[in-house]
Computed example of a mutant assay.
Amino acid sequence: MIEMKHVVKKYPGGNKALQGLNVSIAQGEFVYVVGPSGAGKSTFIKMLYAEERASAGKVIVNDVDITKLPARKVPFLRRQLGVVFQDYKLLPKKNVYENIAYALEVIEKDTKFIKQRVIAVLKLVGLATKAKRFPHELSGGEQQRVAIARSIVNQPQIVIADEPTGNLDPETTWEIMKVFEAINAQGTTIIMATHNREVVDRMRHRVLRIDKGRLVNDQRGGGYDGY
């Protein structure tokens, strides 16, 4: 599903964000990526959808070696992935239904299929009654639910989330995490960068800890214990 082999990422000026990273993630796993600010978490996440490219090593996603992927093919890779951002990235002039449907319209799915899928994911994320609302009419948690729905509407095998609860209050955070749990229960791989220790401790899954660009711990089935 996902493999990183001896991955190095150097930024201009010589700063190494990742230093010889080796990681393998199987289909259906739920993986937290944790570590202090500046440790390399965001670079790790961005590598998976080719926002950043490795300076050395290999990054393989769904049997595609991203390190050799021409730029013109990156959009096709991203269609196989769901990406959720901390700042939602919703289209302000489109309502909830339209924001989600847009992800299918750009790949030219037919109208009937789009309607069925959008309704299905709205039910999954608990927004079936708010399809006609615009982003400014929603709470932060509701906007994040829309962003999650948009990320899964094309039924990706992998959902990548970069600090998806970072701007949310504790109660809303747990609601959002339950949505991710439901998505994972359907067989979707979840990879989530997070600073939220309580989430990692309470909703126990595999934890990859990165520090100074290196994988310093890989713990299956348990939070921050031992870190």
Rank of each mutant, 00 (worst) to 15 (best):
90 L>P: 02
41 K>N: 11
119 I>P: 00
24 S>H: 13
6 H>E: 13
113 F>S: 07
84 V>G: 02
127 L>H: 15
57 G>P: 08
49 Y>V: 04
127 L>W: 15
113 F>K: 05
161 A>R: 05
61 V>D: 04
109 K>I: 09
103 A>Q: 01
193 A>H: 01
63 D>K: 13
222 G>W: 06
56 A>Y: 03
184 N>T: 05
43 T>H: 02
73 K>A: 14
18 L>N: 12
115 K>W: 07
68 K>P: 01
140 G>C: 01
3 E>Y: 04
76 F>L: 11
150 R>A: 09
24 S>Y: 12
149 A>I: 09
58 K>M: 04
136 H>A: 11
65 D>M: 14
10 K>T: 05
17 A>T: 04
60 I>A: 06
192 M>R: 04
47 M>Q: 15
218 D>G: 03
105 E>V: 05
79 R>P: 15
120 A>D: 03
56 A>I: 03
151 S>N: 04
138 L>M: 12
218 D>N: 05
78 R>M: 05
19 Q>N: 07
187 G>T: 10
34 V>H: 00
29 E>G: 12
39 A>F: 00
63 D>I: 11
127 L>S: 15
7 V>A: 04
112 K>M: 01
84 V>E: 02
173 T>C: 05
35 G>R: 14
168 L>E: 10
225 D>W: 06
169 D>Y: 09
123 K>C: 04
140 G>I: 00
109 K>W: 12
41 K>F: 08
140 G>L: 00
119 I>A: 12
65 D>K: 14
101 A>C: 07
137 E>K: 10
16 K>I: 07
172 T>A: 14
217 N>V: 09
30 F>H: 07
68 K>Q: 12
54 A>Q: 10
168 L>P: 05
57 G>S: 12
77 L>M: 15
58 K>G: 02
221 G>W: 05
62 N>V: 02
149 A>Q: 07
14 G>T: 13
177 M>C: 07
76 F>V: 12
29 E>S: 08
179 V>T: 14
66 I>Q: 06
68 K>T: 11
105 E>I: 11
